[in-house]
């Protein structure tokens, strides 16, 4: 396998609020390889968005990155000056958000905003800029792109705006595109189109994608590898097939069992994950998931389990799984 393009090492991001220190991201490490699609899933408040913002150093006060390294092509982004970081944002690593309307300037024409995204880094010939902007809008399959560059954001539908955001993200051919819940605000048929677009762009441009979502279906359709986060930590990580067919962390398992499936038998009981996500100011002792876990053993209440190999390329942080893996001398496989 090629060298990772992005390595996150022991990232800790905390928010210093009046009520205490919120440990939003608490020791997250992972690698991203060139051209791959990596999904980061979890409930709201699990730290997946803050992880993404940390990579681009866009965490707002009172949040601060307090520990870790973020190596992009070998350079630690946390060591860069603000100026160097600004250079890199949008050029090497681009990000798109859930709400494309608030990310676009309502009083500027869409074409101009796409051009601006290009000018921010490359010295593009002014004459070529417009045709390049149109080309980008065509690439994200906006119909009648050459006339729509003159339109304003409010004249676009939600799905079309998200396409514009993707076009702006791709303007400088970044090597990584971080998408934070890009389809959550969209209807399913539009979501399907955007996902298809992202899939094709990944295939054609080899841009690596980090897809942050709470929707397991979105991950299943788009990602090659999956990271499951809970309470600011990675609880499981592995290839998409293993995560879905052979989850090794009770949280992953519960997540999969809690969503109704279009192809499942009707009236199958859904297993909702009872209880609240943990208070990130004073999280529970031991495994952070233990208060909601139906498989917990004594050890879960005392010690925080490390993220260890449980299968080929698959890692999980769970004492129960580990116990069983040791007993059987090989990773548990089941269905």
């Amino acid at each position: 396998m090629a060298a990772p393009i992005l390595q996150v090492k022991d990232l800790k991001t905390q928010f210093f609020t009046d009520d205490g220190v919120v440990k939003a991201v608490n020791g997250v490490s992972f690698d991203l390889y060139p051209g791959e699609t990596l999904g980061i899933v979890g409930e709201s408040g699990c730290g997946k968005s803050v992880t993404a913002l940390s990579i681009l150093r866009l965490v707002q006060e009172p949040g601060r990155i307090v520990n870790g390294q973020i190596l992009f092509k070998g350079d630690d982004l946390l060591e860069l000056s603000n100026e160097e970081m600004r250079e890199l944002r949008g050029k090497d690593i681009a990000m798109i958000f859930q709400d494309p309307l608030s990310s676009l300037n309502p009083v500027l024409k869409v074409g101009f905003q796409v051009e601006e995204a290009m000018f921010a880094h490359d010295r593009v010939n002014k004459k070529n800029a417009l045709s390049r902007a149109i080309e980008l809008l065509k690439q994200v399959r906006i119909p009648a792109a050459s006339s729509r560059v003159k339109d304003y954001p409010h004249q676009f539908s939600g799905g079309m705006r998200q396409r514009v955001m993707i076009a702006m993200g791709l303007a400088n051919k970044p090597s990584i595109l971080i998408a934070d819940e890009p389809t959550t605000a969209l209807d399913v048929t539009v979501q399907a189109q955007i996902l298809e677009l992202l899939r094709d762009l990944n295939r054609d441009t080899r841009t690596a994608i980090i897809m942050i979502t709470h929707n397991m279906g979105v991950v299943a359709g788009l990602c090659q590898r999956v990271i499951v986060m809970y309470a600011g930590q990675i609880v499981e990580e592995g290839p998409v097939h293993q995560i879905f067919h052979n989850p090794q962390h009770p949280y992953t398992w519960s997540l999969l069992r809690s969503i109704p499936r279009l192809d499942s038998d009707r009236h199958d009981r859904l297993l909702s994950i009872e209880g609240l996500p943990p208070d990130l100011i004073s999280p529970p002792r031991g495994c952070k998931f233990n208060p909601r876990c139906q498989f917990r053993i004594d050890r879960c209440l005392r010690e925080d389990p490390p993220l260890l190999d449980v299968g080929p390329d698959q890692r999980a942080a769970c004492w129960v799984t580990m116990d069983r893996a040791l007993k059987h001398k090989e990773p548990a496989v089941g269905g």
Binding site: P247, L276, D279, T321, V333, G335
Partner: peptide, 21 residues
């Protein structure tokens, strides 16, 4: 599924944990 469902929990109120006093 790799993990068998555990013994069903006794009925607890979902509201026993409240966000913040």
């Amino acid at each position: 599924m790799a993990l068998a469902p555990g013994v069903a929990n006794p009925q607890e109120y979902v509201g026993d944990t409240v966000a913040r006093e």
